[in-house]
Structure formats: C-alpha cells, structure tokens
C-alpha cells in the first residue's frame, strides 16, 4: 500500500504525463519530499519557504489540508492526496505577487 497522489495537468510534465503517482511518508511534508526524489522539481512547485504555495490546493481525501495541518498533516497508506491549481485572481494587483 502507498499513498496515491493525483497530479493536475499543469504539473504532469514532472511525472512523465502520469495523472497519479504513488509515494510514502508519515506527513504531507515527507510525502512531498519522497515524490520529489522520483519527480525532481515537484516539491518546488508545491512548497516555498513559508509552506504550501498559495497557487495550489492540496487535499487529503476530501479535506483541504489548509484546514488540517498544512505540511504537518499526517498521511498514511491508503490515503489519496489531490493537487489542484488554485483558481484565483482579480482586478487588484497581488501584494508580493510572482511578477
């Protein structure tokens, strides 16, 4: 058993096109590090110095991990983690935006 991680289109260039990959770890943080060892660059797209990037939503089963424990959220075999790009924007310029 492992943890299934569903990957959005925008990140599938890092998973050889795979829609889902498997990984292991006791926390979301460990899981992402494990995935990054086989899919280099994935961690950088999900995590920055402050934690989960605001441009992505990460779900453990049916819950948004922001409402659980963020990167410290415990995960275990049989769980499904889903990554979706956040859909956001608006007329105002984002303070501290990427560009």
């Amino acid at each position: 058993m492992a943890i299934e991680v569903r990957i959005p289109t925008i990140l599938r260039n890092l998973t050889d096109g795979a829609k889902a990959v498997e990984g292991k770890g006791g926390s979301l943080d460990e899981l992402i590090t494990d995935l990054d060892s086989r899919h280099p660059g994935l961690r950088d797209r999900l995590v920055d110095a402050k934690g989960l990037r605001k441009f992505v939503n990460v779900y453990l089963n049916d819950e948004d991990v922001r409402f659980l424990g963020g990167l410290d959220t415990e995960v275990s075999d049989g769980d499904t983690v889903t990554v979706l790009p956040a859909v956001a924007g608006g007329a105002a310029d984002l303070p501290g935006g990427r560009r």
Partner: peptide
C-alpha cells in the same frame, strides 16, 4: 491583471 496572470495555470 497581474494577479490574474500569476495565477493562470490552465
């Protein structure tokens, strides 16, 4: 906007 562009991921 710049915000729209920075979030656009599709």
């Amino acid at each position: 906007s710049r915000t729209d562009i920075s979030y656009a991921s599709e």
